[in-house]
Simulated assay, not measured.
Amino acid sequence: MVESDKQNNGDQLSQNQRELADKLEEDVRYLSEYIGERNMRRPVRMEKTAAWIEDRMHRAGYSVTRQTYQIQSGAFQGSSADNVIAELKGKRNPEEIIIIGAHYDTVPGSPGANDNSSAVAVLLMLAEWFKDSSQSRTIRFVSFANEEPPFFKTEDMGSYAYARKAKENGEQIKAMIAMDGLGYFSDQEGSQRFPLPGLGLFYPSTANFIVFASRVADRDLMNKSLDTFRKSTELKAEGVALPGITPGVSWSDHWSFWQFDYPAFMITDTLPFRDPNYHSPADTAERLDYHHMALIAEGLKHIISSLASG
């Protein structure tokens, strides 16, 4: 989105929303500029990122835990990685759990401003908002390790290790939301592409909207959440429920929860289908639209409140 468009959008925000946008940008810049590339090739930076998220959650008032797991195969076999977990215990139905997740690693060579500092920043803001709230169900805010290749769609993803342990423990996860790439938007016609040519007949070709994506089995959960989002924010949002084998539909941490029959969907700007600097050294903070991210955060706040009230 060109700068003039960002400014016009910013003029329409409330003072609270502008402050939120500034805070989101601060967190994205910390992750992508101060820490930078973070993956198992750079274990010190992975630890620095996990420790920073842990500290932020502590300062928000949470008791924070880490789930440490061992990588089972490949070049990093035997290495350990950490998921960072902050929990808000439900008041009436604490055994019923809502998971809000975002991965904190990047591909090699990328600072990962959009993928996935943008979602981590929103995750932290959501956790701060909910700390003093009273919800029926338990809410967990989880920062996952190792979503990116070479771990992508393997048992060595942090989210897979988490979902597997949850299933072993008999946990009742009622919904999981994976946030992945929330910051890149454009008002240029033709800026939005699709994994299947036919989808372009039903969805906008301008990348100025956010997408909710799920497998067909979780369509009702996704549609309910999409409806809540649309009622709570002016940001355009589209929903798509397709077979899990469709390119793009399963490309994040929600895939891991599907493997254990937990309902889950993704919220995303669609990453490679619109962002020209996806998975590249040019995935930098100044490209992102923090005003839109502020609206996404507010919409997600209403979704979580609705899901956790059950």
Rank of each mutant, 00 (worst) to 15 (best):
E95F: 01
R42N: 14
P195W: 06
A75Q: 15
A121K: 02
L295W: 00
G90M: 02
I303N: 02
R45V: 01
A21C: 08
I177R: 00
S4T: 12
R219L: 09
L126W: 00
N223T: 15
A213M: 13
T68C: 07
S143D: 08
R215I: 14
E95S: 12
G36L: 01
S305F: 12
G299F: 04
H302E: 15
E47G: 04
T68S: 14
E128N: 15
L126T: 03
N114L: 03
S117D: 10
L124F: 09
K167C: 10
G158K: 03
L235F: 01
K174H: 11
L20H: 04
S205E: 10
W251H: 00
S252T: 00
E54G: 05
G74M: 06
D180H: 00
D253T: 05
D5W: 08
S186W: 10
L126I: 03
P150C: 10
E286N: 13
L242N: 05
G10M: 15
S205P: 04
L24H: 04
A113W: 09
M157N: 04
P94N: 12
L226H: 06
V122W: 01
T270D: 00
F185W: 08
M179Q: 03
L221G: 03
S252A: 02
L13R: 06
L196F: 06
V240A: 11
A264K: 00
N93E: 13
F257L: 06
S214C: 02
K91C: 08
E47K: 14
L182N: 00
S79K: 15
E168R: 13
M293W: 05
F144C: 08
A285E: 14
V216W: 04
V2E: 14
M222P: 06
S252G: 01
Q67V: 11
T228I: 14
N277V: 14
Y104R: 02
R92G: 10
N277W: 11
S80W: 13
S205Y: 04
R193V: 11
F257K: 00
L13F: 06
G183V: 12
G78T: 08
L31R: 11
F185T: 11
K224E: 14
I267K: 00
F265M: 01
E286K: 09
N116K: 01
S309M: 11
T106E: 02
L307D: 01
S134F: 13
Q192S: 07
S306V: 13
F265D: 00
Y184H: 05
P111L: 05
A119F: 03
G78I: 08
K131A: 07
R219A: 11
N9T: 13
G299E: 07
L226D: 03
Q192W: 07
E3Q: 14
P204D: 08
T49S: 12
N146G: 13
A121N: 02
M1Q: 12
P149L: 09
P108Y: 12
I296Y: 01
D5E: 12
T206V: 13
A175G: 10
F260L: 02
Q70L: 12
V64T: 11
I296R: 07
P108T: 13
G74A: 07
A217S: 15
V120T: 11
Y104I: 05
K153F: 14
